[in-house]
């Protein structure tokens, strides 16, 4: 009896000391995330209902709550709608294009007929790890209307020079081409992993049944790759909604605001003009959009699994 009690107290002691240990291990990371991530998110929400501006920056006494005024101002600003349209353009055209190129290259690299696979895989991945700023600068010169290499190559096949970054109708497609070039390697790797997870005997059985390459692709590869595809599409879309550095470096949002993105607008309002209340409201609109797409992803993923 006595022994049992002793054992019992000992168990409680070790459990509580382990819980203490767990909290000691957790607390530094949780403190950083709590103070420098969670708190700012809540503060941003509050900020979006104030008129925090350059005067408030000097003296916080100037801050006033203004209710939904920032959000109303957003809806009434044509430039916001323009930025929203541009961002959606980038996401809905650039996103699927990126994923398609990633899938295409993954299929090619996964083929038994392909040579130098690992070399190509490395090369295709180089733009992913390269600094976006440097890449944007390189492409700005490649796109130069007078002496850029792209126009030179086009002139060789008889196409007149294109004002890539100077024409409001072409600037965004130009940024999309660059983004596809920079990013396709990342999703390609994820697709390759997904392809390698498909059991070989599925293809062998189909082959024995006399299924063509296209039939195998349609009936085996596409369905088996669905979970990977849903995942890849969503991370790409979420990432592309945060478009910022490309227009910042290449076009400054121009020409005629044709490449101004939501985040660029937020940056300019918040950190150039110090309209931080207004900028916080813009940030929350972005958040709401991303949240919406994430919920869609979760629903899709659930339906794929069942």
């Amino acid at each position: 009896m006595k022994l049992e009690t002793q054992h019992f107290t000992q168990t409680i002691m070790t459990t509580s000391s382990r819980t203490t240990a767990a909290w000691i291990f957790l607390s530094p990371a949780l403190a950083v995330i709590g103070i420098f991530f969670v708190l700012p998110v809540l503060a941003a929400f509050t900020l979006s209902f104030t008129d925090f501006d350059i005067y408030a920056l000097g003296n916080w006494d100037y801050i006033r709550f203004v209710g939904f005024q920032n959000y109303i101002r957003i809806v009434e600003t044509p430039l916001f709608w323009k930025a929203l349209k541009n961002t959606f353009y980038f996401v809905l055209v650039g996103g699927p294009l990126s994923v398609a190129v990633s899938l295409g290259t993954a299929l090619m690299l996964n083929s038994k007929l392909a040579k130098f696979k690992s070399l190509y895989r490395t090369i295709y991945f180089l733009p992913v790890v390269s600094s976006l700023i440097a890449v944007a600068i390189i492409w700005r010169y490649l796109y130069h209307p007078a002496h850029g290499i792209l126009n030179y190559l086009l002139s060789q096949i008889g196409i007149a020079p294109i004002d890539w970054l100077g024409d409001p109708d072409i600037a965004m497609p130009a940024i999309i081409i660059m983004a596809v070039w920079k990013n396709f390697g990342y999703n390609m790797l994820i697709f390759i992993a997904g392809l390698q997870n498909i059991p070989d005997d599925l293809y062998e059985a189909a082959h024995l049944d006399g299924a063509s390459w296209w039939q195998q692709f349609k009936e085996i590869t596409i369905p088996m790759l669905k979970p990977t595809t849903v995942f890849v599409v969503m991370i790409t879309i979420i990432g592309y909604f945060q478009l910022f550095a490309e227009p910042y470096v290449m076009t400054q949002g121009g020409p005629l605001n044709s490449t101004t993105s939501i985040v660029l607008l937020m940056y300019e309002q918040g950190f150039r003009w110090w309209s931080m209340g207004y900028a916080a409201a813009i940030a929350f609109v972005l958040f709401a959009i991303i949240l919406f797409f994430t919920v869609i992803q979760m629903v899709l993923q659930r339906s794929v699994r069942h």
Partner: peptide
């Protein structure tokens, strides 16, 4: 470690991945 609220806390952290970093930058 098994402690109270562990899984809830971890899931809450994962939910934080949805928030774009730009939201935190102003505050």
């Amino acid at each position: 470690y098994h402690f109270k609220g562990r899984d809830k806390m971890f899931n809450a952290l994962l939910a934080g991945l949805v928030v774009p970093a730009q939201v935190t930058m102003l505050p």
